[in-house]
Design a protein around this nucleic acid. Structure first.
Length: 455
RNA sequence: UCCUCUGUAGCUCAGCGGUAGAGCGGGUGGCUGUUAACCACUAGGUCGUUGGUUCGAAUCCAACCGGAGGAGCCA
């Protein structure tokens, strides 16, 4: 008999009959003449209730010693459950104990703190919440590819080790074989120059967009900032589409369409897991996701956003003033209080944005955009790129960057330059938004944050 | 890097100046178509570390270490 997944049994309309199931014991309850075993194999949140009669072979050796966490194989017949709480249960004909769990198995049948579960990241996928999170993570990764592939975007693998310490982006992790010696010049190092883990595949992505038209990257990204918040990790995954012959407006539309698509996909394909989050993590989750799927996102220019914040009468800790960055509290006010829906803010002052963003005709702003969602803040950041050679060169100079270091990037503007645009979407931030989980460390299998790189 | 909170049994926490407690988990026994099952008994802790105040410190003070939240930066 071949193994059947518990999800298949739980979802069955018709009785599946005789089956073989394999999984891990969540709990056992003994009656006088039989035991109940709650079995989970990770295929869904729900457990399968197994009734093991004391007369079946191996009852003493394989059922009575079972502790929470043990792995078992069970053969039996699926029958309608006599008890409430589940449609089907299994009347076992044979139970084989594959590997018992030692007495100190740390996952109990009770609520644990997220902090404790992080410390046992090798076992936490066996907890309901994390099983659900990582099933959704898998599904969302699939949906990301589906979204772009349906639009004929080309998936590009940009390098993870890079020599461009550029962009004024965050701190980078140095990649070296020198072990502490001669780090600064890098001349003696493996690549003959200093190299780092990538903070973004954007610049490389642009080169491919300027050949294949529409591309996307989806891979790991590394930031060495010493940031301690629930929204930052040192290693995370980012999705970065880049489109040739594309302006900011089309860029924003794609970002909005993508967020809606992913939310809709989760609602459609992860309903049970989302239901679990809705019960135990965030009571308003499903309603909010449905809202996001149905309604248009708001769009305001940075200038309008600043005016709106000033005239709101709201007391902010940090000042709102044209030319200053929007603070977290300002972004949250916009998306959570004022619009009560996702908001795209666009056309930011040049001074607060990087060299590669396209200067607008007003000479004061650049064609940048941030997509803000309630509860998380910025989930997408993007821009139309500066495609005009002379202006890009001037920008490099203004930002005190050496054109030599960006020669290949500048080249794109010399040979068949085109207007192009793209954005970065933080995969984990999307997952936080979709699952309602409040800490980025709990949507990454083995999170890396300052001071923590276990497992 | 800065600000705030926090560190007591395997887990979740109470105790907040006078010789360490509960629930859950573990072990043993009982009961029951049970479902975070229930009942009884039992084992388990140099109260984060170091120093100080005190007759006496888990409790007060200081430093350090760990954890969490927020800010900045960003995704």
């Amino acid at each position: 008999m071949s193994r059947i997944l518990i999800s298949e049994i739980r979802n069955a309309e018709e009785c599946p009959g005789d089956v073989l199931v394999k999984g891990w014991v969540r709990t056992r309850r003994d009656a006088k003449a039989f035991s109940f075993i709650e079995l989970n194999d990770g295929s869904c949140v729900g457990n399968l209730q197994v009734v093991a009669d004391a007369t079946i072979p191996g009852y003493e050796d394989s059922v009575l010693p079972l502790r929470t966490g043990a792995s078992v194989e069970i053969e039996g017949k699926v029958v309608a459950s006599q008890g409430g709480g589940q449609k089907w249960e299994i009347q076992a004909s044979a139970v084989r104990l594959v590997g018992n769990a030692e007495e100190d198995f740390p996952l109990q049948k009770k609520g644990h703190s997220m902090e404790f579960l992080r410390s046992i990241a090798h076992l936490r996928p066996r907890a309901n919440l994390f099983g659900a999170v990582f099933r959704v993570r898998s599904r969302m990764a699939y949906a990301v590819h589906q979204f772009f592939q349906e639009k004929a975007f080309v998936y590009v693998h940009t390098p993870i080790i890079t020599a461009s310490d550029c962009e004024g982006a965050g701190e980078m992790f140095r990649v070296t074989t020198l072990d502490g010696k001669e780090l600064d010049s890098g001349a003696e190092d493996f690549f003959g120059k200093p190299t780092y883990l990538t903070v973004s595949g954007q610049l490389e992505g642009e080169t491919f967009a300027c050949a294949l038209s529409n591309i996307y990257t989806f891979g790991p990204t590394f930031r060495a900032e010493n940031s301690h918040t629930s929204r930052h990790a040192s290693e995370f995954w980012m999705i970065e589409p880049e489109m040739a012959f594309c302006d900011l407006d089309q860029d924003m539309s794609l970002a909005e369409e993508m967020v809606k698509y992913l939310v809709a996909d989760a609602l459609e394909n992860c309903a049970e897991d989302l239901g679990f989050f809705n019960r135990f993590v965030d009571k308003g989750l499903v309603e909010r996701l449905e809202f996001v799927r149905e309604r248009d996102f708001a769009r305001v220019s940075y200038t309008e956003a600043v005016e709106l914040l000033i005239s709101s009468g709201e007391k902010f800790e940090y000042p709102v003033e044209y030319g200053l960055n929007l603070q977290s509290e300002h972004e949250r006010y916009l998306t959570e209080t004022h619009f009560k829906c996702p908001v795209t803010v666009y056309n930011y002052p040049r001074e607060i944005k990087p060299f590669y963003m396209r200067k607008n005709d007003d000479e004061k702003t650049v064609a940048a955009m941030d997509l803000l969602v309630p509860g998380i803040g910025e989930i997408v950041g993007g821009s139309q790129r500066e495609e005009r050679l002379d202006i890009l060169r001037a920008n490099l100079k203004e930002h005190d960057l050496d054109e030599k270091d960006y020669q290949w990037y500048v080249d794109l503007r010399r040979y068949g330059s085109v207007p192009h645009a793209g954005f970065g979407l933080g995969f984990e931030r999307l997952l936080m938004f979709v699952t309602g989980v409040g800490n980025i460390r709990d949507v990454i299998p083995f999170p890396r944050v300052p001071g923590w790189a276990e497992f």
